[in-house]
Amino acid sequence: MLQIEDLWVTIEDKEVLKGINLKIQTGETHILFGKNGSGKSTLLMTLMGFARYKVVQGRILFKGTDITQMPTYERARLGLGLAFQRPPTIRGVKTLDLLQVCSGKGRPAAEALAFDYDFENFLEREINYGFSGGEIKKSELLQLLAQDPALVLLDEPESGVDLENLQMVGEIIRRLLQKERRRADRDKSGLIITHTGFILNYLNADKGHVMCDGQIACHGIPREILEHIKEQGYEECVRCLTISKE
């Protein structure tokens, strides 16, 4: 599904990603750990093709196509979908309109989705205007459900969500990644950034990666990585990376 080869990325001439290699097979869910500023969000933004993120070396293959230079909207149409951590507010444009853009279908499809997740009161509201943290997350995830991407990119889907809504967020992510199906029948993949690891309570992820200073420091079983980080913090990862460099 996704193959990242030796990816180097700069933001305003500052090197942020330094040789990322990552492969995600169809049906797999990967978790991205790493402390703030390690480059996790940059990786997701680069995959989506935003202008600030300049690929200076390496390439990104999606479904076998080299998308490294492809404009964002073509990537979206090809099946990449990103839930933003902090999306912008767009005044005067209704959330319903955006959901319709995402689904490419009419109003009923968008309304039905909102109804499923108790979001119909937000349809007439301006996009993200005055939304709480949890409402923003929910809106982002519903947009993805409408978009139905083959590769789901989630940037801290749990941040700002209260306990009451956490379960619903987990359920939507399960649905996005077809977790109700047998592994062999899934055709969606996911790459999820999480700080808390909450998402592991809702789904089994296949692989975990720890990012550190623009590189993937180590791979492993997500739950084990999480336990490790909880016990020893990211400093241990840094040390580990230093050792492996030497």
Partner: peptide
């Protein structure tokens, strides 16, 4: 870019 990420 936000809207482009949704396919516009």
């Amino acid at each position: 870019e936000y809207l482009m990420a949704r396919g516009l």
